[in-house]
Amino acid sequence: MNNHILNLKGISVEKNDVCILEDINLEIKQGDFLNIYGSNGAGKTTLLKLLSGLTEPTAGEIKFNNDDFMDKVFILGHKNGIKLNLTVLENLQFISNNQDIKKIKSVIEKYELTSKMNTLAKYLSHGQQKRVALMKAMINDYDVWLLDEPYSGLDQAGEEILDNILVDHIKNSGVVVITNHKEIKKEKVNIKNYKIE
């Protein structure tokens, strides 16, 4: 059965006559954990933006096999996208249109931030802020998570928590696409590494 949700064929992106991406061919299916790696300036962030629909290709074809795909995409760039003057709970309530408070609290518990629920986000560590950002994706049931260098700035404990969150999402038939500077391998999950130059 073809369960590809997204196919990229011969994608190129040019900006101001500078070629940023050239001839990218990529298939993403449900349950994939994709690591896009390459050196600085290789076009990793541009590729993520392309997948999120924020950037249009100058050549090639992007084929969505699921019409609702763009409704289920969550993108987390270098910044965490949370409001520092709101508490953890408020950040999640406002992004989820005040949906079921029990669901929000259970997600906070899962992400090990119950004790920080009523703390302003500006008082959280970088890793904790990143977890709050990922909670947004979980609360809103986004299927496809596009994360730009999610491991940067995290300590070992933070990386482990993030690993567990991402693996959980994959097990629930979600899709995770991350960018990184190097190839990665994890015991808990099979990661597809894709190098761009």
Binding site: S52, G53, L54, M70, D71, V73, F74, I75, L76, G77, H78, K79, N80, G81, I82, K83, L84, I95, K136, N140, Y142
Partner: peptide, 14 residues
């Protein structure tokens, strides 16, 4: 734009 939430809000079509 500065805190990154603009990207998130514009990506989700609904």
């Amino acid at each position: 734009y500065d805190d990154g939430s603009l990207e998130m809000s514009i990506t989700s079509e609904s």
